[in-house]
Design a protein around this nucleic acid. Structure first.
Lengths: 152, 152
DNA sequence: CAAATCTCAGCGGCACTGAAATTT
DNA sequence: CAAATTTCAGTGACGCTGAGATTT
């Protein structure tokens, strides 16, 4: 008697949509984490690098708000990135309470490698969907995220 | 100078789809957790109750595999549920290594309350989407979860 | 005997709270 | 002085690993 039960999610929970979305999000998170692990980066590390690359130098507070990260969690992640030489912290000349964080040239190179790994992980993750579905899902995710912004 | 920056996610990460899906999944998870918090239940508590309700009594091993939970994590969650009288553990007469877990009448009542709270949370969470989009998102999530099943 | 099942101890990622130190 | 910013210490949920005890 060896019951090799596969994944079998309770329909009564899946029906609503919130539970399934949470599970799929976890799977997506795992896939992204795996893609960055070989670079020694975590998900939030890459998020900080990408934010600095896209929006330019920011104070830690602003950087955190953009990514919905708690200020106390920003500290540790930036410590890691700074130790690797991927970001720079400098006092803000306009306000000594703030530190201006910027991405370094090495940080940009690392970010580029992370993007390559991410793209591969995405192709694999969304491999089961055809192009139209993948586009549709992406649109709905963006719409959903806009709602998240409001709610917070 | 008070920069009240809102959520502003890096486009270069969002473009691929995996990052956005991960974020939306986290938001969905938070919403579900909040819906169950007033009942003193966590997400996995409700998942176990729903699984037992939908599929009937199971060994802890099978119960865990169905929900993609590690056997070691099943133990603690069932301890909680059993302490509240929501599930029952009995030795499997066919195999003394196993324990048969079943949901109690009280567990079903609690699960019902959890479903009510979840439905409300879902209406609020998906409030920004029209009915067609909500249906489409749910379909794509199911398709995506099917892929997750394969990959694991 | 090897394998399966339950259990416990521990670690890593992540999100959050509370509070201290410094500066505006 | 109150408020903003960075920082640290701690907690909780969650997923995973490794190992022990019992039974098949």
């Amino acid at each position: 008697v060896a019951p090799d039960e596969p994944l079998r999610l309770p329909p009564q929970l899946l029906d609503g949509g919130l539970y399934g979305l949470s599970l799929l999000g976890s799977a997506a998170r795992r896939a992204a984490i795996a893609a960055f692990a070989e670079l020694g980066l975590r998900l939030d590390h890459v998020a900080f690098l990408a934010s600095l690359d896209d929006f330019g130098p920011s104070s830690q507070r602003v950087l955190g708000r953009r990514l919905r990260k708690d200020p106390s969690d920003v500290v540790g992640a930036l410590d890691d990135l700074q130790a690797e030489g991927l970001v720079r912290r400098a006092p803000d000349p306009a306000d000594a309470r703030r530190k201006l964080v910027s991405i370094t040239a090495k940080g940009r190179r690392t970010l580029g490698r992370a993007q390559v790994g991410l793209a591969a992980a995405e192709d694999e993750f969304f491999g089961g969907l055809d192009a139209a579905d993948r586009r549709a899902l992406q649109r709905l995710v963006r719409a959903g995220l806009a709602g998240v912004d409001d709610r917070a």
